[in-house]
C-alpha cells in the first residue's frame, strides 16, 4: 500500500508539472502584450511599458522565464502579479477559500440531491415518480451551466429578489456586524451559484445512482435479503445502497475537475470572488504568473481529489486490495 501510494504521489507530481509547463508555455505564446492588455485599451507610454516589462523580466526568452519560474517555485515563490501589483500567493489566498466553499457546497448539492433522487427513483422503479424524475433529470443534465446560472440570476435575483445577484457577502452590513451574521449572509449569497454549479451534476448523479441501484438489485444477496423477509426500506438502504455507492465514489473523483472548471463560468456570472474569476481576468490581461499558479493549484486539487477517491474506494470495498508489487490502479482493479 505504501509503495503504491508513493508511486501515485510521484505520478501526481509529474502530472502537475506537465500541466504547469503546458500552461506556462501556452499563455506565453498567446498573442498580446501584458503591459498593453493589462491597462485596458489605452496605450501607455512605451517607455513605461518597457520599464514594466524589464521589471518583470518579460523581455527574456520563454525558456529562460520558465527556468526562472521553476527556480522560484522550488523556493515556494509563485511570483508577482503584473496586473494586481501583488504577490500571486496573496491573491490566491484571498480567492481560494471562496472557490473551495463554492465547490464544497456544489458537491453537497450534487451528491446529496443526486443520491437521494437516484435512490428514490430506484425504489419507485417504473412508477410515475421514477418516470417524471427520469425526464426531469435528463432535462436538467442537458442544460448548459452558464445558461442555468443566468436564468436563476434573472428569476430569483432580479425578478423575485429572493437572493443576492452577485458577490459573496453584503458589503454594506457585513463589515459592521459580527461574524455570525456574515456567516448566514455568506450562505445566502452562495445559494444561487452553488445550485447552478451543483444542480446539473446532481441530475447526472441521480441517473448514475439509479443505474447502479438497479444493477445491484439483480444480485443474489439482495434477493436473499428480500427472501428473508426484511422490510423493503432496509433492503434498499442497507443492502442495495451500500453496494451501489461504490461506483459513486469513482464518480466523486471525476466530478472535482468539472466543479473547478465549472466554477470559472459560475464565478463570473455571479461575481463570486474566487479563483475562477481571478483566472479569467488574468487570462484576459495576460497575467502570466496568476494563470500558471491557478493551473498549478487546480491541477493539484484535481489530482488530490482523484487520489482521495481511489483511497476511499479501497477502504469502502474490502474486495479491492492493492498488493505491494501491484502497479495497477485501484479504480481499475
Amino acid at each position: 500500500m505504501t509503495a503504491w501510494l508513493l508511486r501515485r504521489l510521484a505520478a501526481s507530481v509529474a502530472i502537475i508539472f506537465a500541466v504547469v509547463t503546458f500552461v506556462f508555455i501556452l499563455i506565453h505564446l498567446a498573442p498580446g502584450d501584458p503591459c498593453i492588455v493589462g491597462t485596458g485599451e489605452g496605450v501607455p507610454d512605451p517607455a513605461v511599458c518597457r520599464s514594466l516589462i524589464r521589471q518583470f523580466a518579460l523581455d527574456q526568452p520563454v525558456l529562460v522565464q520558465y527556468w526562472r519560474y521553476l527556480v522560484e517555485l522550488a523556493h515556494g515563490n509563485l511570483g508577482y502579479s503584473f496586473a494586481l501589483h501583488r504577490p500571486v500567493w496573496d491573491a490566491l489566498v484571498d480567492t481560494m477559500p471562496f472557490t473551495l466553499q463554492l465547490a464544497g457546497a456544489a458537491l453537497l448539492i450534487d451528491f446529496g440531491l443526486g443520491l437521494a433522487l437516484g435512490i428514490y427513483q430506484a425504489w419507485r422503479l417504473n412508477r410515475l415518480p421514477d418516470v417524471v424524475l427520469g425526464n426531469v433529470t435528463l432535462f436538467v443534465y442537458s442544460l448548459p451551466t452558464f445558461w442555468l446560472g443566468l436564468i436563476l440570476l434573472l428569476l430569483f435575483g432580479e425578478k423575485l429578489r429572493l437572493f443576492p445577484v452577485g458577490g459573496a457577502s453584503d458589503p454594506v452590513l457585513c463589515p459592521l456586524v459580527d461574524s455570525f451574521y456574515c456567516l448566514a449572509d455568506r450562505i445566502w449569497h452562495m445559494v444561487l451559484p452553488a445550485v447552478t454549479l451543483g444542480l446539473v451534476g446532481a441530475a447526472g448523479t441521480a441517473r448514475f445512482q439509479r443505474a447502479a441501484m438497479l444493477e445491484v438489485a439483480q444480485q443474489d444477496f439482495v434477493r436473499t435479503a428480500r427472501a428473508k423477509g426484511l422490510p423493503e426500506r432496509r433492503v434498499v438502504l442497507h443492502h442495495q445502497l451500500r453496494n451501489a455507492l461504490l461506483s459513486v465514489i469513482t464518480r466523486f473523483g471525476l466530478t472535482l475537475p468539472f466543479l473547478l472548471t465549472g466554477a470559472v463560468l459560475v464565478e463570473t456570472i455571479f461575481a463570486w470572488p474566487g479563483m475562477g474569476r481571478l483566472t479569467v481576468d488574468a487570462i484576459l490581461r495576460r497575467d502570466y504568473a496568476i494563470v500558471t499558479a491557478a493551473a498549478l493549484i487546480a491541477s493539484s486539487l484535481v489530482v488530490a481529489g482523484s487520489l482521495i477517491a481511489d483511497l476511499l474506494l479501497g477502504f469502502a470495498d474490502p474486495r479491492i486490495r492493492v498488493h505491494e508489487d501491484a502497479v495497477v490502479d485501484i479504480v481499475t482493479a
Binding site: A30, P31, G32, D33, I36, L284
Partner: peptide, 11 residues
C-alpha cells in the same frame, strides 16, 4: 479577436 491578440496585431 481577443483584446490582447487584437492589440498585438494593430501595434
Amino acid at each position: 479577436l481577443d483584446p490582447g491578440a487584437l492589440q498585438q496585431r494593430i501595434s
